[in-house]
Every structure is written in structure tokens, then in C-alpha cells.
Design a protein around this nucleic acid. Structure first.
Lengths: 201, 201
DNA sequence: GTCTATAGAAAGATAGAC
DNA sequence: GTCTATCTTTCTATAGAC
């Protein structure tokens, strides 16, 4: 049956999308270091030259992965937002961010590590959704003051990003306990920032 | 004159130390990616096999760099601590940390990036001095309460580390303005944490 | 759009001489 | 402790056929 969709190895279809998926798999399994165009091609059963029809070079594929990772991070965090107060929802964003960093550590590190083309404006496409989540939650809390909202959103993002980093550095211990600890610490620090937010502006 | 110390290319002496220095130079110039045992050997004018007499492998040299970087970070931040109140000194630690991250970006990224052997206990030797600086300043502020001191020190470290990360991601702009912005934001957030620190415990 | 084939480069690590 | 020499592996990227 020629028309059946065979996903044994993949063959003809949307190679571009398949490469992004495979790159994310490889990164999840072995970290960014363990990813290469050659390995991704091998896993998909295509020639190592095939990706060059869709991406100018390795970095361009990596950037595409970053964009997808940013969307995934933003939607994942958004989906976990809950609570009946503005404060509760901003806290939930911080919690969700740290949790995502823990659950998708290699992808998180790929996105915020040294390998993304930070200078290039294309990279903004990747980070914009994430910034939006913090900004939206902070704006709701800060009422009508856009300056206060900006400061608060950034501070909470820094705290969440910072605890994610400390967690990955093993400074909060290892294993599931460390994750819960990091999440709880990020929550507490977010509450402290909110309580002391008059010092932010 | 055979006994003159020639530093043209280096020859015989403390190769171990020279390798660490050269590795830090290479990292400063080209980032961690641009560092290799081969390149370091080349620059010192020794054979590529020479380093293996002093380090089991590449990672072991990188770890030694991490230890040195940790000491440098801790002493640099310590030297910048000033102010006549406990609060001012804790704030100065946060400022100094972000400033160091900006000034020694490649080294900072090498130390806290994906390449250090985080799992291994040896890595603690590298991070311990840095943790100590935050902990000492927080303890002075928290008075006799060790739990509060621990929480506060960690939160300020997370904020500083977080702003350093956001700065490197270009989320605070580019250039010297961005650095000053990051430092100022880290200071403000630290003050907010201190003001709202009752929420931390 | 994908394949074969290949050029070209670089690195990690080891064996054995001195 | 350092050197020469070499093995082995892996990757990026391109040229040209189908």
C-alpha cells in the first residue's frame, strides 16, 4: 500500500519539521553537545546533506529549535497558571518556569545556553512569548502602572531564571526533592518581591 | 644566557598552571567552544600530548579552570563590598556579582554553563567560595537566625544570577547601558527581597 | 528534494622514544 | 615531563547525479 503513512524511518514529507523534532529529541537525550546535523540525519534515515535544503547551516536549525522551545515554555507555563488573585497567578508563573526548567532541562539549557545567536534579532522570536507570560501576569498585578509592571515582571523573571540556574548547578541538592525545593524557593522569593515591590521602581 | 626566564613560548616550569592560564585566555577570547587541549598546547608551544601528564582529560582541565574562576569571582566580589550597613553590603554583593558576569562573560558562562561536571563533588570546590560570599553577607543581615540567613542569601544569589543570565540573553539591551541597567535592577530587586523577606521563610 | 561521494578540518587520546 | 607520530572518530559543507 504505497499511500500509507509509514513512519518507520520517515521518507518524504515535511523534512524541515521532522528535523526540528529530531533535534529536540537528541537534545533531550544527550544535551546540546550531543546534537549534530549528521546525527539528526542518521536518525531520520536521510542523507547528511539533506538538511541543507532546509537550513543554511547547523545554527539555523538550532535557532528553529529555540523558537519552538520558547513557544513550548510559554504555553506550558500559561497552562499551569491558576489561582484567584493576581498575586497567585504571578507566583504560578514563577513556579511553572522553574518546573519547566527542571522537566526539560536539556532543552532549557539549549535555549538559554551559550549556543543561541543571542545578538541576532531572530532570537527575539524565540524569547518573546516567554517574556510575554511574565509581563502579562505582572501587569495585572501592578494595575495601571506600566513602569512598575515592567520592573516587577523582570524581577520575577530574574528570580525564576536564577533559581532554575541554581537548581541545574546542583546548589539546591539533587533529585525530585531539589526540584520541589527550587519551586518553593522561587515562590517564596516572588512573594517577597511582591511584598517589597515599592523598592523596585 | 641559559638561565634567563624566557616567556616567549614557555618551556619547562609549571605546565599545569600555565595550561589553566592559557585555557582562561582562550575562553576569554573565544568562549568555551573555542577552547581545546590542542589549541592550548599550540599556544604554549608544547606538544598536544603534554597536557595529559597533568590532566586526565579535557574535562579535568576545564574543572580546574572552574575552580580558579570561582575563586576569582569570590575575591572580586568581596573586594567591592562596601557600605556602612548590612543591607548595603548585601546589595553590593549582588551588584558585584552581576558586574563580574558582565565583565568576564565568557569565563562566567564557562563556569555556569553546560560544560562543568556539575554532578561531581569536585565541582563544589569551585562554587563554594561564591556561595560563601552571599551567605556571609546574608548572615550579617539576618542577625542570629540561620534559616532566615540561608533563605535570604539564596534568594539574593538567585536574583543576581538571574539578572546576569537575562543580561547575557540580551533582554536588558546591549552595551554598557545594559550592564548598568542590569546592575541597577539587581540592586533594586535585592532591596525588595530584603524589604519583603518575611515572606521568604 | 533527496542521494552518493567526498573534500577538508579538527579534536581526543595513546604508544613509545628521549 | 616532554616530544614525535599516529590512530580514530566525528563533523560541516559542497558538487553533481537522479
Amino acid at each position: 500500500m504505497p499511500r500509507t503513512t509509514r513512519r518507520d524511518r520517515y521518507h518524504h514529507g515535511d523534512l524541515r519539521a521532522a528535523l526540528i523534532d529530531t533535534a529536540m529529541e537528541l537534545i533531550a537525550e544527550q544535551g546540546v553537545q550531543g546534537f549534530s546535523l549528521a546525527e539528526a540525519s542518521r536518525r531520520l534515515g536521510v542523507a547528511v546533506s539533506a538538511p541543507y535544503r532546509h537550513f543554511a547551516d547547523r545554527d539555523e536549525l538550532l535557532l528553529a529549535v529555540g523558537v519552538r522551545a520558547g513557544e513550548l515554555l510559554a504555553t506550558t507555563v500559561s497552562a499551569e497558571i491558576g489561582g484567584d488573585s493576581h498575586e497567585a497567578r504571578l507566583v504560578a508563573v514563577a513556579r511553572g518556569y522553574v518546573r519547566f526548567a527542571a522537566r526539560h532541562r536539556p532543552l532549557f539549557e539549549a535555549m538559554f545556553g551559550t549556543l543561541m545567536p543571542v545578538g541576532e534579532p531572530e532570537f527575539e522570536r524565540a524569547t518573546q512569548p516567554v517574556k510575554g507570560v511574565f509581563h502579562t501576569a505582572a501587569t495585572a498585578l501592578a494595575g495601571g502602572d506600566p513602569v512598575a509592571a515592567e520592573s516587577l515582571g523582570l524581577a520575577v523573571a530574574a528570580v525564576a531564571h536564577g533559581y532554575a540556574g541554581l537548581l541545574h548547578l546542583g546548589m539546591l541538592g539533587e533529585g525530585d526533592d531539589a526540584v520541589e525545593h527550587a519551586v518553593a524557593r522561587a515562590e517564596a522569593a516572588t512573594r517577597a518581591l511582591i511584598a517589597g515591590r515599592s523598592a523596585l521602581t
